[in-house]
Design a protein around this nucleic acid. Sequence first.
DNA 1: TTCATTTTTAGACATTTGTCTAGTAGATTA
DNA 2: TAATCTACTAGACAAATGTCTAAAAATGAA
Lengths: 187, 187
Amino acid sequence: MSKVKKYFEDIGFSGDDLQKILNAFELQTFKKNDFVVEEGKTSRYMGFVETGMFQYYVIQDGEERTNYVSIENTFFASVLSFISETPSLENVKALVDGSISMISRTNLKMLLNEIPTFKDFYIGLLEASLCGIDASRYDLIVLTAEQRYEKMLKNEPHLLQQIPLQHLASMLAVTPRHLSRIRSKIR
Amino acid sequence: MSKVKKYFEDIGFSGDDLQKILNAFELQTFKKNDFVVEEGKTSRYMGFVETGMFQYYVIQDGEERTNYVSIENTFFASVLSFISETPSLENVKALVDGSISMISRTNLKMLLNEIPTFKDFYIGLLEASLCGIDASRYDLIVLTAEQRYEKMLKNEPHLLQQIPLQHLASMLAVTPRHLSRIRSKIR
DNA sequence: TTCATTTTTAGACATTTGTCTAGTAGATTA
DNA sequence: TAATCTACTAGACAAATGTCTAAAAATGAA
């Protein structure tokens, strides 16, 4: 069973509604280094990560600056492009082979119109996303790089095992060189 | 006429719906330095800023670290506390005398249930908030302090006129000392 | 106006973080 | 197996940013 199916079952969808929701998604597979979203192209899909890891980044002075990494069992979206239907400022690519259950903005709007409780689900998803990103932004402002690393170590240790350090460094808004310093200091 | 009324009229509400919405809000006034939200207390209201400016901050090592400032004609919310109904991690206080049209989470839920199109409005508000905060977080990761200041100078010059520099510095994630350096370099 | 308070600027120095470079260890491939 | 390749670490130095302090400038109150 797909993870997206389990996800929607767990939050209470069933019967026709569940079927309609699942029909609106389509599974896409990605090889390592495949692009899910490319800078300059409008991203018309969001999705639910079934397997793998997907890196969000921009190219600056020829280097990748990673903003975020989506892992299994979480929603994926290039937020600004998907919501405002404008060309993406960022790239999203597969860090390893993986798959995403994708839903187009068109199908999302269809579900919102046809299934009343889907609106409540979507409101909940947006509210939770807002909380998460707000907290993350707070950390960038009020915590030092070292404190941010320690927080990740404590709250999201799985990220440290899964995501290459170079990308974690960028997510923590430091260089790999400096993350290496922080790690050697803490150990 | 209140600004919140004009706001909801402009996005298409009228008649009974508009009246019901406006009845769900209540105007609160604040003197300079009054608290709108206090750390440790659950913030049960969000609102629409009618007049004034409101500073979001945490106390760290005895100092205020400003995260954000809400100005006129924008929505105000201590997001994490209001949405998850948990004690606030931040303070929000009036930088000058001002007023906010406030709506409780209870009344918000009531409007969501009673006015179908209000859900669409709220989804739009959440999506726009998500875009804004996502872009802001991106800037903290990929831009230098100087680039962030220049971007604010270009895109939000009104903030520079209205908000004390010490708070802008914190929002840009630098010290007032360093913002002063940046400003003298750019001019 | 005058006085007091707050805000902003800036010097001197310390700390943090970045850049450049190189080396090591582990994985992958021919 | 050798030969790459990639990820991670780390030294040396440079640049960015913070801390502490003081003074000037702006603001508000009497």
